[in-house]
């Protein structure tokens, strides 16, 4: 043995290998973190899809084009998107530290995508998304954004205000139909109601009238969609 080998031997002389349980503890912690991160990301994704589906994001879209989906996405609470991305990236990076998963990272990507998609349906089926959305803390976030929870989709009407009267507004939807929007003391208003403004009206419809539960600005001023970052509104016929 040479000098180097002797030096190494001397170096380990007084040391002992760490016991296996210590590494086992670290591995289990990593795996639990991945599992917890995965569960959190599933529910976050569920919340994102739930908002798009139920909080006057998707229903007012006159046409399902990438442009409209982009606007819906940009209108989501930015905290939600940031936390979701961080959690998914964290899960991905941490998973690569488990065993030899780094050898085939695409397998990991497939597992994450499939799990999230599957997990979302589990979250929806269990009703947890709806439950969370109706909790006070979640409602505050939505209301801060000018969102209302009118119920399931189909209750939102988008249109351009043509006339403002006492207790009523008149508006034309993208198909050209004129609606009379009835406003009362309980109507939540998150938009400047003036002639020419494009608004989303939430509330049940009868023939040509809408009992407004809430009226929001059609130009989302929430999430990433603020000021110049927000694509301009476009009314397109269905």
């Amino acid at each position: 043995m040479g000098e180097l080998e002797d030096k190494i031997k001397k170096g380990i002389e007084t040391r002992k290998p760490k016991p296996y349980w210590q590494f086992l503890g670290v591995d289990i912690t990593k795996e639990l973190l991945v599992m917890a991160g995965w569960i959190v990301s599933v529910f976050l994704l569920g919340a994102i899809v739930y908002i798009i589906a139920n909080f006057n994001a998707l229903p007012p879209l006159p046409r399902a084009t990438p442009y409209h989906y982009l606007r819906s996405f940009l209108g989501l609470p930015w905290e939600l998107i940031v936390v979701f991305v961080l959690v998914v990236v964290g899960v991905y990076l941490l998973s690569k530290k488990i065993s030899t998963l780094y050898r085939k990272p695409y397998v990991l990507v497939i597992i994450i995508v499939v799990s999230l998609a599957g997990g979302y349906f589990v979250a929806e089926a269990s009703g947890i998304n709806e439950y969370i959305a109706n909790r006070t803390a979640a409602r505050r976030i939505y209301e801060r954004q000018g969102r209302f929870l009118p119920g399931r989709r189909g209750l939102v009407t988008i249109g351009k205000i043509t006339k403002v009267e006492e207790g009523n507004i008149m508006m034309d939807d993208p198909t050209g139909k004129t609606w009379t929007v009835k406003i009362n003391d309980d109507t939540k208003t998150g938009a400047d109601l003036k002639s020419g403004a494009i608004v989303s009206v939430i509330g049940p419809r009868n023939d040509s009238t809408i009992e407004a539960i809430g009226i929001t600005d059609e130009i989302p001023r929430r999430g990433f969609c603020q000021g110049s970052y927000c694509p301009p509104p476009r009314l397109m016929p269905r």
Partner: peptide, 23 residues
């Protein structure tokens, strides 16, 4: 490099229980 090598072997020895048999 001599000291770094010694340090690497010490680490390997101390952490030998974490050696993954898949590698």
């Amino acid at each position: 490099s001599e000291d770094i090598t010694q340090e690497a072997f010490i680490k390997a020895y101390v952490n030998i229980a974490s050696f993954n048999p898949k590698l």
